[in-house]
Design a protein around this nucleic acid. Sequence first.
DNA 1: CCACTCATGTAAAGTGTTACATGATTTC
DNA 2: GAAATCATGTAACACTTTACATGAGTGG
Lengths: 181, 181
Amino acid sequence: MSNMTGTLGHALLGLLAERPRTGYGLLKHFEQSLAYAWPASHSQIYPELAKLLGAGLIREGEALPRGGRPYELTDAGLAEVRNWLRETEPSRTVRSEATLRLFFLWLLEPEDAQTYLRAEAERARTVLAELEAIAEQEDPDSPKTRAYRIALELGLRTTRARLEWAEWAEPAVRASSRPSR
Amino acid sequence: MSNMTGTLGHALLGLLAERPRTGYGLLKHFEQSLAYAWPASHSQIYPELAKLLGAGLIREGEALPRGGRPYELTDAGLAEVRNWLRETEPSRTVRSEATLRLFFLWLLEPEDAQTYLRAEAERARTVLAELEAIAEQEDPDSPKTRAYRIALELGLRTTRARLEWAEWAEPAVRASSRPSR
DNA sequence: CCACTCATGTAAAGTGTTACATGATTTC
DNA sequence: GAAATCATGTAACACTTTACATGAGTGG
């Protein structure tokens, strides 16, 4: 049963483990905290919920005012997500176009390469500010919020590392690009 | 012309900017250095090369012994990849299943959550060792190798940050998971 | 001669993005 | 009454993974 659903499905189950939510509510969650780790759009979420429903991993709750349809986790759903976490290895593939481009910086004039790295630094500063704003929110202590803090701390540390790297790289790139063909 | 090809196509053009290579040679490059930023398999590379050839961004060179077909960049191809680097914004979406799972760590017993974080630390140590081995290679100084060093430095710094985070998080998780349902 | 690496392709299935499409409720 | 937000869905296209398929040359 573990391979009935992919990463997105398990993420939905994990979110529903906290409490019932509508597809829209799940979407908002993906746009906020989870956006840094696993973005997803409504056009993926709704069909995936239908699939989870068909597999008996979630069930529908009572309809809400504006056409909202909350889903809640079934026992099978909780077992599925816990099994996924405990028994399966996470995929380690990471794709970052911004990082890929670094390998080709030597194709640019030094000034253009510097512009690119300045933008990378600026981007890191923006993300860092967003994460720091989240870190300042005081939320009630619970297992879930503690797990979120651990994820947040990873974001803070790697973003700081990225920022420091970009600030180091910007002057270092001067001699790393060729002037012309 | 810039949207005739996606990230993979531009990555292939960027690699061919250094010197002509066969599809297989490009594949090996994706499995080595580029694997950390943008993995790609042969089943993606060969059709993409055919597409680039059709678009006039690369041309075929003389056939090599074992059926190897080297491709070289055309002027249009070089212009395309440089334009991509200078004029288009890199996509910022990053997907990491290993990071996503952190948000659901509270669904596990503390010991299982700790096991997960220990594996994350171990994984970071492995990657760090790989990157450090690459860093120790002495390669001739050139614009290209300098750009690669900048990319490598990002890998080293973010991997170290990830390792330090995992070592910090492993004891911190103790109280972050719930014991049972 | 056997295994390994070099070398290239196609097909099917799964995943993700962008665009199309609609409608209710709330807030200004 | 208009705009924003809540709310759900489908369709087409693009991209990625996994499996299928084949063959030549090298090293032991």
